[in-house]
């Protein structure tokens, strides 16, 4: 279970650039939840993920992960329990190292002086073949040679290799072409389901926000303004969501991409 209690974050406090990115956000995520998060640019969605990962210290509030208070724990120590994917497929893997070496770091097994064993290699091969991209036959090639979609799929595999307590997906298909995005989304769904991973997914695609998962959050100006699950969510359409946004935020959704539910680069 992931619990956020009254968390606040203001950037550049006390300057003309002051930006209240998270305002008193409280959220409880149950084990096995798959939550989609939508909201206009600058709403604070990525900042919410940064807070969970510990990229900065909170101004106020508390974060509890699986019963443990992690508010003061540095980023790299939390990382073992948190998997994260970014929009940029290049961010999740080391381009100068081979697929196998990247996976070895993600698997995190063995002591500092251990090397990749034949058994490790066999396990990597099996997991890679689940991606259906033929990467299992290219394990010694540098990751820099892979396409964006392949790299994002590999990052997904790396982030979930040791099953994380929570998986954070930050528009992780937005930089891919539509076909590849579809494929990576499908992989995401199956990996999350098979491993019963608790997952939060930011998306620009209203349709996948409603199709995937069991709960949807809408964020605006540093706050969660709408939180929907169960039957009510089952009945929602994209039109309902945009109405909701207008009603709750007092503005129209300014993002065409979001209205149309297109999930690719213009």
């Amino acid at each position: 279970m992931l619990e956020l209690k009254n968390i606040c974050k203001t950037f550049h406090a006390g300057t003309p650039d002051e930006k209240r990115a998270l305002i008193d956000v409280t959220l409880t995520v149950e084990d096995g939840d798959f939550i989609s998060i939508i909201g206009a640019n600058g709403a604070g969605k990525s900042t919410l993920f940064n807070a969970i990962c510990g990229s900065f210290m909170l101004d106020a509030g508390m974060i509890r992960l699986d019963g443990q208070n992690v508010t003061m724990i540095p980023e790299h120590q939390r990382a073992r329990q948190i998997g994260r994917l970014f929009q940029d497929p290049m961010r999740g893997s080391a381009p100068d190292m081979s697929i196998e070496e990247n996976l070895a770091l993600a698997a995190g097994k063995g002591g500092w002086l251990s090397r990749v064993s034949a058994a490790d290699r066999k396990a990597f091969r099996e997991r890679l073949s689940l991606l259906g991209m033929g990467l299992e036959d290219r394990m010694r090639q540098p990751v820099g040679l892979l396409s964006g979609g392949q790299r994002q799929a590999l990052t997904l595999l790396m982030a979930t290799y040791q099953v994380p307590k929570v998986l954070l997906l930050d528009e992780h298909t937005a930089a891919l072409d539509p076909g590849t995005a579809e494929k990576v989304l499908e992989l995401t769904r199956s990996i999350v389901e098979d491993n019963h991973i608790t997952c939060l997914m930011i998306t620009h695609n209203m349709q996948s926000a409603l199709d995937l998962g069991n709960r949807t959050l809408m964020m605006d100006r540093g706050k969660i303004i709408y939180d929907v699950t169960g039957e009510e969510r089952g009945r929602l359409t994209i039109g309902d969501l945009t109405d909701k946004f207008r009603q709750l935020s007092g503005r129209a959704l300014d993002n065409d991409r979001m209205l149309l539910g297109i999930d690719n680069k213009e």
């Binding site: 790299h76 120590q77 990382a79 961010r91 381009p95 100068d96 190292m97 770091l105 090397r115």
Partner: peptide
């Protein structure tokens, strides 16, 4: 450079973000 420590050092030069997300301190 093929041990886990060596891999982590190489990854630090190649993509420090990824090292952090593998729970290794750059």
């Amino acid at each position: 450079l093929k041990t886990k420590l060596g891999l982590a050092i190489r990854a630090t030069g190649s993509n420090a973000d990824m090292v952090r997300s593998s729970s290794i301190n750059p």
